[in-house]
Nucleic acid binder design. Structure first.
Lengths: 194, 194
DNA sequence: ACAATCCGGATATTACACGTCCAGATTCCC
DNA sequence: GGGAATCTGGACGTGTAATATCCGGATTGT
């Protein structure tokens, strides 16, 4: 699954935590998580096209939540970023080679392998659709009580200058960090116990 | 999800349908589905390393099922081919930018976004683990009654020459076919209604 | 008018899935 | 014992998609 999903969920939560009707620009959202602004904008555009965010152009423009968090499921966000395709794509190898003879017999019969993978995918999608961003927000606040206030404070004083410890060019510099490789052991990831 | 999962499941089913204790070589399995033999061998090796198949070297060697189909779940095959990593990889962007201040607070707290995605992944894995290859085989035979006999017949006479309509070089030629693009409409895929 | 922003496309870079090839080891058959 | 077929593991090449940047155009606030 692409990294954009993580970015999208966190940005939606941030927009809700700010509790501010004014739109938030891509640059400010990107600074809040040290993400490459131009690329984050692509993900936000996808969210807007999916109806999860609304975008307003102009000098005071940016993105806002199109509806409250309890009306946005994780399935909505994943579909907006990843597209509607299933993870398992049946290429019908059963109809090649030995299955090629007598094509009139098997052609319209569903592939049992694809059907089974499809059922598992449905279970995944149902689990995603059963969890709203409001649920995720509540769980995060349960872990860290002062979360919303801290974010409001950061965005309140941060304005366009991202952070005292992070000057303007830090976002593009931090963006060069590659995703942690699965094969390499615990290299750069913090413990994050739990 | 990589294409190797489809190959692996179909190959396991074929090995069961043959009802023959003798090992089947990569070349014969590849010919049966017009797959690139060298690359299919990589997937079969992964299945062997996962304990799903057993491999025997030598001139009459090849691959056999390590246990009956009802002891092999789709989860086993997917894990063998795709590895143990979850689809959603949390990169902890919550601890970058505004979350970087006060690292002592949030570091050991689980990420609610990752937790929610993890629950969905668990639902997927449970659904995969609940379906054995015996279930898939039964469903396929329900669709096409004569399936096992047809495969036995093909492998019985096919020997090392793959097929009358498919000469020796056809497998590598057919392997050049790219996976159907999601964006392009119905281009090359057969109807496969169901 | 100007600056900040969104929008959409073009382009570059990187990672990974896909696929081939080769040397080595093992086993079967002659 | 020798040769052929096969598995094993690694190196290597290729092509596509994810990642990331940039630019021109449109829109809006100051």
């Amino acid at each position: 699954m692409s990294e954009g999903v993580e970015w999208a969920v966190h940005c939606c939560l941030t927009l809700a935590w700010l509790e501010d009707d004014r739109p938030v620009s891509t640059a400010r959202l990107a600074a809040g998580y040290e993400l490459p602004p131009a690329y984050l904008n692509k993900q936000l555009q996808a969210l807007a096209k999916a109806g999860i965010l609304t975008s307003t152009p102009g000098v005071k423009g940016g993105f806002r939540l199109a509806r409250p968090l309890d009306k946005i499921t994780l399935m909505d966000v994943v579909t907006a970023i990843e597209g509607p395709d299933e993870a398992f794509q049946c290429t019908e190898i059963r109809q090649r080679g030995m299955g090629a003879e007598g094509p009139e017999r098997r052609f319209r019969v569903p592939c049992a392998v694809a059907s089974a993978m499809h059922r598992a995918e449905l279970a995944w999608r149902r689990a995603l659709a059963a969890q709203t961003l409001a649920d995720v927000r509540a769980e995060a606040e349960g872990h860290v009580p002062g979360l919303g206030e801290g974010i409001q404070r950061w965005y309140g004083r941060g304005a366009s200058t991202p952070s005292p410890a992070a000057p303007a060019g830090s976002a593009s510099a931090a963006s060069r960090r590659p995703r942690a490789s699965r094969t390499s052991g615990a290299s750069g990831a913090p413990p994050a116990t739990g």
